[in-house]
């Protein structure tokens, strides 16, 4: 140790109460990782394929997801059609991979014990991990929209948008609504990420946690499609995701969207607390 270092006694290292370094480090880990960059690349393939295939052929009416038929009228619909395709599996899988990795990944390679020994308080660790999951979820969803908007505008052009309810809005407000719908979905996926964070505290196998998130997601969609379980539908984590189309009514149909946001917040809160209850006094032996 040099003389300069010796002069700094341990006590002379003040605590920084507010610091974004940990969160920034998390985001660098997530977005700097090859695997995740490849995942974002795959998410971008859907809007590109969609835009190109619609451009070279005319979709038959009555087939395919919502918004598909409207693409030729306004390129913005490429983003919306892509979101409605990817919300069933691709985006939940992407968020599930990050969430599943959050604690189990660190436990798996052993870095968890070194984080806790720094020390990082366990509550802070869970808070930062969930913040990073939420940011990733928003970024991934916005990325799909961005690629969709770019491809759509390039191939089909923009202009006034015809709403699902029939009226028309200008290009500026239309883009704003696309952004709002994207953020709405991103928050929905983040609530699934909270479930993933909880599962991630139960295991040291990140892949296992990711698979569990995807299974829960698919299960939720299946239950949502069984009419006999209609009493359950509004409580399912994925039920309100398709309501993002309500942003394209005039005026915006807030009922379903509000329920969707409340459901997402409820799942996020309950499962973050479950993760905390599980992790705050867990023996870290990995």
């Amino acid at each position: 140790m040099s003389a300069a270092e010796l002069a700094t006694s341990p006590a002379a290292r003040p605590l920084r109460h507010v610091s974004t370094r940990f969160l920034r480090s998390e985001l660098r880990l997530i977005f700097g990782r090859r695997r995740n960059q490849a995942g974002l690349g795959i998410l971008a393939v859907v809007p590109l394929i969609l835009a190109i295939t619609v451009k070279v052929s005319t979709p038959r009416p009555g087939h395919g997801p919502d918004f598909l038929a409207s693409i030729t009228s306004n390129g913005l619909f490429v983003a919306l059609a892509s979101l409605s395709i990817e919300l069933a599996l691709f985006l939940p899988l992407a968020v599930g991979a990050i969430a599943g990795d959050s604690i189990a990944g660190e436990a798996n390679i052993g870095t968890l014990r070194y984080l806790l020994a720094v020390p990082v308080h366990r509550t802070r660790l869970l808070a930062v991990k969930f913040a990073a999951i939420t940011i990733f979820s928003l970024v991934a969803t916005l990325w799909v929209s961005l690629v969709g908007v770019a491809a759509g505008l390039a191939l089909f052009g923009g202009g006034d948008m015809t709403m699902l309810s029939g009226g028309q809005i200008g290009m500026g407000p239309a883009v704003l609504r696309v952004v709002m719908a994207t953020v709405y979905l991103g928050l929905g996926f983040a609530s699934l990420g909270a479930i993933g964070l909880f599962i991630s505290t139960l295991t040291e196998q990140p892949i296992g946690a990711t698979i569990a998130v995807v299974i829960l997601n698919v299960m939720s969609f299946i239950l949502d499609s069984i009419p006999q379980l209609s009493w359950l539908h509004e409580w399912l984590p994925t039920h309100w995701w398709m309501s993002f189309g309500d942003f394209f009514r005039d005026p915006v149909a807030w009922d379903g969207l509000t329920r969707g946001l409340l459901t997402a917040a409820g799942y996020a809160l309950v499962f973050w607390l479950a993760a905390w209850a599980r992790f705050s006094d867990k023996d870290v032996t990995g």
């Binding site: 605590l15 109460h17 880990l29 700097g32 052993g110 870095t111």
Partner: peptide, 23 residues
């Protein structure tokens, strides 16, 4: 035993450890 992120460099791994230390 040692435990670090395999796909980060040695320097990036130490920076990661330092960044979570609020002191």
């Amino acid at each position: 035993g040692p435990a670090f992120h395999p796909y980060l460099t040695a320097r990036a791994n130490l920076q990661r450890l330092d960044s979570v230390d609020r002191h």
